[in-house]
């Protein structure tokens, strides 16, 4: 691997916001493709950050910071990508459920999914079930990611599942849940498919499911 790509990995691993544009530009100047910078640099850096989060070396603030670093360079890289590069693993509709406005966890998942080649449709916070399901229908998405932090709003997850059933879409879409108040038990109660304790887990599980679907 080139030193330039190693520098991208290092900048993300060390959460070096001030240096990321420089190291990405060096990669581009050396003729490394934007796709390779994303896959071999950014994603590998995010893997390290994710692993450090899982082992307790990094915390949510560090994940957010890594996300900000990636967001800083992704528009530039995407704008330079050929359409043939933009092979998407799957479409994911992401939302913080109705009645909840917490967005950190959702934003981290969005960032990781985006960097890992998923097409992310981020509907934001406080999103009603109807809008989520209409978007799934319109975009033909394979996954829904629902973030819920407030224990008072867990019923909003069930509303999404019920709405999918009413629209005849339940078997076509896998529903992921995450957030402070969610759990395996809640997943079963609400009729969702996957509970992810961390953003990294969510992305890994989605990747596995995509592999199984292809």
């Amino acid at each position: 691997m080139s030193n330039a790509l190693q520098s991208v990995i290092k900048a993300i691993d060390e959460l070096d916001f001030d240096n990321i544009n420089n190291v990405v530009q060096i990669c581009l100047d050396e003729g490394i493709s934007p796709l390779s910078i994303i896959q071999d640099g950014i994603c590998k850096g995010l893997d390290i950050v994710g692993e450090k989060f899982n082992t307790g070396e990094y915390f949510l603030a560090d994940l957010v910071m890594a996300g900000e670093i990636v967001n800083e360079v992704m528009p530039n890289l995407k704008a330079r990508m050929n359409s043939s590069d933009a092979v998407q693993k799957g479409k994911v509709v992401m939302a913080t459920v109705k009645g909840d406005i917490h967005e950190i966890g959702k934003n981290i998942v969005c960032m990781l999914l985006d960097a890992n080649g998923f097409e992310v449709i981020d509907l934001g916070i406080d999103v009603p079930a109807e809008r989520i399901v209409n978007t799934v229908k319109e975009k033909k998405a394979s996954f829904i990611g629902l973030s819920c932090l407030l224990s008072t709003m867990v019923g909003s997850i069930g509303e999404v599942v019920e709405s999918l059933k009413r629209e005849g879409l339940r078997e076509k879409v896998r529903v992921f849940i995450g957030g402070a108040c969610t759990s395996e038990q809640l997943k079963d109660e609400m009729g969702a498919d996957v509970y992810s304790a961390t953003a990294v887990d969510a992305v890994r599980t989605m990747e596995k499911m995509c592999g199984a679907m292809t």
């Binding site: 959460l15 916001f17 001030d18 603030a61 957010v64 910071m65 900000e68 950190i104 934003n107």
Partner: peptide, 11 residues
């Protein structure tokens, strides 16, 4: 905003 606050805390 939490994201801005995190950035300030790091930088």
């Amino acid at each position: 905003g939490i994201t801005s606050l995190i950035k300030i805390s790091r930088r």
